[in-house]
Design a protein around this nucleic acid. Structure first.
Lengths: 127, 127
DNA sequence: AAAATATGCAATACATAGGTTGCATTTAAT
DNA sequence: ATTAAATGCAACCTATGTATTGCATATTTT
């Protein structure tokens, strides 16, 4: 076989959506990426439970510098998971529930596909 | 104020768990990180719907090389989201639902915290 | 006004992620 | 036995992520 033939396969499983790419997946990946860091996950959990907090207070709960926390907050903000409000000399960050729901829907969708596959399998076995 | 006083703050919000770090969050972060890539999210969705598939078939649905897909599969495997079985000269990859459930539980826990905070707020306003 | 607090900005360092290429190895098909 | 197919392994490249340091700026507080 020639060297780089790998990409030339044309045997594509029927269930595999090629270029149109599930839009829900494209939307969800950045949200999961934002949640895929322990520090950020903690920040989300804290903001979720404690209302709006300043950077200084959020930094107090970590071993990293304020600037590092600031960057994490911006990552979360880019993913739409938090938003900020400037109050005086402070910048308060608060949780934004909408995108978390989006993530939940994605997981549910995948899990549902799985359940469906299981169900089909079960029916196939029963017959 | 001296230059790097940021880390010396001792005003810690009551709700903020310092070093003990919620164990659930530490477990979930790697799972979210694994899901935080569009290609991997697609792979999960495909495996979830289509049973066990070889690397070659999984590669056919993408624009990237087989080796890149292999790396993504290993990331998913490290997160416990997929597992592989060697069959003849093929290596088949299949979805592993347990860890996805873990991710769902994490999101539910966070969302529940949020609901709880809202409920407390509502009660406070009503009084 | 002066000092303290809270944050912003920019440069930098370092590790890791994502991807590729080239070649070797294992199995299956002819 | 050859050839083809599927995969494994390793080196490499580049971009991005994480975190730091140093300094500047904006707001309170005293």
């Amino acid at each position: 076989m020639s060297r780089h033939a790998d990409r030339r396969y044309n045997i594509v499983p029927r269930s595999l959506p090629r270029s149109p790419k599930h839009p829900a997946l494209r939307k969800s990946a950045p949200i999961f990426a934002a949640l895929g860091d322990e520090t950020r996950l903690r920040l989300v959990a804290i903001l979720c439970a404690g209302g709006a907090l300043s950077i200084a207070r959020l930094t107090a709960g970590t071993q990293i510098t304020r600037q590092a926390v600031t960057k994490h907050l911006h990552v979360l903000a880019d993913a739409g998971l938090v938003r900020d409000v400037k109050v005086g000399r402070e910048r308060l960050w608060e949780f934004e529930p909408a995108q978390l729901e989006e993530a939940r829907r994605s997981l549910d969708a995948i899990a549902q596909q799985w359940d469906h596959a299981l169900h089909k399998l079960k029916k196939a076995v029963e017959q």
